[in-house]
Computed example of a mutant assay.
Amino acid sequence: MKEDVKYNDHLKELLEQLPKGAFLTVKDGDKLNTMTIGWGTIGFIWQKPVFVVMVRKSRYTYQLLENAKEFTVSIPVNKDLKQALAFCGTKSGREFDKFKECNLTPEPGKVVNTPVIGECDLHYECKVIYQQSMEPALVAESIKKLAYSKGDYHVMYYGEIVACYVKE
């Protein structure tokens, strides 16, 4: 059973797990993909709860997200999904069905058409309300060296959180 919660009720769990990995899932028509994210943030912008995720233009997820304009973030709080997170963070959805390869269960979202990962405990459903490509000239040199040595910058997607729930 899924219990609706406020978007900020489980920030501690989210912020502890995010650096270890979470699943960003996107569905565009019959194309479905999930990828591992280790960066993101939740806040309150434009009088809305917002989850900001970053996706590189080279990623398969980027192509899907550009069309779908919605995404889900699934957080494994109580279950060890390290192997699935590692696979989904290193393999491309262009070449692999990550759900099949990792035995992940896509479960229908409550509000959006994109599913959540059934093996996870905490879920955010989001609709893109703003996006912006990073401007390389505005990025600190230390960050460029750390994350962008190949020039593969991110697009930031601001998703209004339209549903948030935990599995009971």
Rank of each mutant, 00 (worst) to 15 (best):
R94I: 01
T90M: 09
K150I: 04
C126N: 05
A147E: 08
Y148M: 07
K150S: 14
F51N: 13
N8D: 15
K98H: 06
K150D: 15
V77C: 07
S142W: 10
P76W: 02
E107H: 02
C120I: 03
Q63H: 13
G118P: 12
Y62M: 04
A140I: 01
N78T: 12
Y157S: 04
K20C: 05
V155I: 13
H154I: 09
N67V: 00
R56Y: 01
R56I: 02
P19Y: 02
D97H: 05
E70F: 00
Y7G: 03
E168G: 09
L65V: 06
L14E: 04
R59F: 00
M1N: 11
T114R: 08
G29E: 14
T36C: 04
H154F: 12
I42D: 00
V139Q: 07
E70W: 00
Y157M: 04
T36K: 01
E16F: 07
G89K: 06
K167I: 12
C164R: 07
L122Q: 09
D152C: 11
V162T: 14
D4Y: 06
F87Q: 06
G159C: 11
Y62V: 03
G89V: 07
Q63Y: 09
K110N: 10
N103H: 14
L138E: 13
K82H: 12
G40C: 12
T34S: 12
R94W: 04
Q83I: 01
T72R: 08
